[in-house]
């Protein structure tokens, strides 16, 4: 597998304007992480563990105070390559309302390629295919404020896709959405990963979303606590609990049964797996 994003011993602290605060707490602490091409990685961690801060290191919005980040082999601290990096790594933020610039869907999607100086006919093609990829093509002439939350977030994703990135980082894209909107966005993300081979980094608080990833990275206090396949990471129920993190409900249920002496060999991740195991036990 080929490494796409490489963070090497990254430390980061916010430059505080408040001079009285002498102690500069590191938000990221000697963090190393490699994301491979085409991977679907979920990043978990409780509030303030530094997930958003890390995400902004991936597209050169932030530069490490210490250490290095490489994107597709380019050092993010290279000022001249800043926009190169941002076309390779697109960032989608939590609140769709605050990332949409234009008052017509297709014009907003065109915003990124327009900034890159792409010729008009090429932009047209990219916008159409991006809107089709997120299944919002019929809404191309609509006003964004009339769309539902899930639709708005898909427009925001289309805006990033139109820049033809190899990787999309999504910082809690479903946090402000209802269950239906969450489902729409997640399906879109999975499809992009599978069909277009786009590397996905999904920051989330929802365990059922994390379970869908190829790999789960758990952060705590600016460090990486666990890193591995979902099944492996969620088998460390005790460690996760100690750090105030949830596990999927199915895993939680089986974990409790196990601690009460029920014989279970493998921890389930999804409800359907859980049902199968319960059926086997109850027979």
């Amino acid at each position: 597998m080929e490494a796409f994003i490489k963070a090497e011993h990254v430390s980061f602290h916010y430059e505080n304007e408040d001079e009285h605060q002498v102690v500069q707490k590191n938000v990221l602490e000697d963090l190393s992480l490699t994301i491979n091409k085409g991977e679907f990685v979920a990043i978990l961690g409780h509030n303030g563990s530094g997930k958003s801060t890390l995400a902004k290191h991936f597209n050169a919005m932030f530069l490490p105070s210490d250490g290095k980040v490489f994107v597709d082999g380019i050092d993010t601290s290279d000022e001249e390559k800043k926009y190169d990096i941002r076309t390779r790594v697109g960032l989608v933020l939590q609140n769709p309302d605050n990332q949409i610039v234009a008052s017509i869907v297709e014009e907003d999607v065109a915003f990124g390629p327009e900034n890159l100086g792409v010729p008009a006919e090429e932009i047209r093609k990219r916008v159409d295919s991006a809107l089709k990829a997120v299944e919002m093509y019929e809404y191309r002439m609509h006003a964004p404020y009339k769309l539902s939350g899930g639709q708005k977030q898909r427009v925001a994703i289309a805006g990033v896709i139109a820049m033809e990135p190899s990787c999309i980082v999504l910082d809690e894209p479903t946090a402000m959405l209802d269950p239906r909107g969450r489902n729409e966005v997640l399906t879109t993300i999975e499809k992009l990963n599978r069909e277009k081979g786009i590397t996905i980094i999904l920051i989330t608080h929802y365990m059922d979303e994390a379970v869908k990833a190829d790999r789960v990275v758990v952060m705590d206090e600016g460090k990486i606590l666990l890193d591995g396949a979902p099944r492996e990471v969620f088998s460390h129920v005790e460690i996760l609990k100690k750090h105030r993190l949830d596990v999927p409900q199915a895993t939680e249920l089986m974990h409790r049964l196990k601690s009460h002496g029920v014989n279970i060999n493998e921890m389930p991740l999804t409800a359907s797996e859980c049902i199968k195991q319960l059926e086997a036990i109850l027979k």
């Binding site: 926009y83 941002r86 933020l93 605050n98 805006g159 990033v160």
Partner: peptide, 10 residues
């Protein structure tokens, strides 16, 4: 946030 998002989109 909008300024941030615009910068992310080059």
């Amino acid at each position: 946030e909008l300024a941030m998002a615009m910068e992310c989109r080059c």
